[in-house]
Amino acid sequence: MAIAGAGQLNLHESPCWGSRSVDCFEKLEQISEGTYGQVYMAREIKTGEIVALKKIRMDNERGFPITAIREIKILKKLHHENVIKLKESVTSQGAKDEQGRPGKCCPIPINNLLLGATKYSPAVDMWSVGCIFAELLHGKLIFPGKDEPEQLNKIFELCGAPDEVNWPGVSKIPWYNNFKPTRPMKRRLREALGNQEKAPATATTRRKGQTTEITAFTASCRLPPIQSGQAHAQMRPGPNPPLHGSQPPVAAGPGHHHGKPRGPAGGPGRYPANGTNGGFNHQNHGGGYSSGPYPPQGRGAPYGSSGMPGAGPRGSGGSGYGVGAPNYSQDGPTEVLVLDVALT
């Protein structure tokens, strides 16, 4: 037989190799839905095993989504009892599903995007990281809203309400007027998370400092993201004074100020390119991270969201949130590790 002609692909060849078809599973109910696609509870027909099935949408312009490639690659590398396992990847005609073990739910970053901001930036990711830290300290979801308005409200209750003082430019964000709080709310994140004594004391207080800073409202008030293999100054072991509730919560110090703005640290293609070199000032905030000290805490009221409530399949009851994060080494958390936690 001759070799294949131009453009030839045998799409009907029996798949004795590679991934199975999604038809091996029976969808029971939809668990959640987001920008990434839908998650279903499903049963493997042959074994009866209950699994979570995540559907990934194909993009006509970009092919198989790079975010899904990242997720699959990372999940394949992670082996931890608190991290959902990628059992296998299955395919359906024109779409691809990914299947994981049930029992754990994933906090899904929503952040500023709730207010209708359309630009995705590293600051948005840092918000999510902050939420995850807070949940580790808290032992449960910190913003368990059933829908977006409720979730925003939970955020405002805990982190204070955003206004032009703590978030210059917020009133210009598309849906701000629809969702802005009716009464003034004060930031009480520190008080809310301050009673957690489950984690070792120093780790707790230090992480608390981290939490409040990365959940700061505006991009320029949050800590810059770090690249894999690096650790934030206050995450390293050392003579960092533990932060106490009464103390001015800004962990000011040279460790905060990176020599230069970290541009698209997440890699190319992840964040939209913009004209500035930092990429963090998507709230029309000049400067970026390296331009000055962090503003006093009262100013940087945080804002955000976190886990999808009840995203775990029915009956599984897995809480997944390890209090104190025993696998979280104090001296070297990286973005990759954060993902580890994010997926528990």
Binding site: I3, A4, A6, L9
Partner: peptide, 24 residues
């Protein structure tokens, strides 16, 4: 090779490898 155009596969493989190695 008889039923899959190697240049089509090669084009797709490079497109995929670029995404997988964060050089989309």
């Amino acid at each position: 090779h008889a039923c899959h155009d190697r240049f089509l596969i090669a084009t797709a493989a490079l497109f995929l490898a670029a995404k997988s190695e964060e050089m989309p």
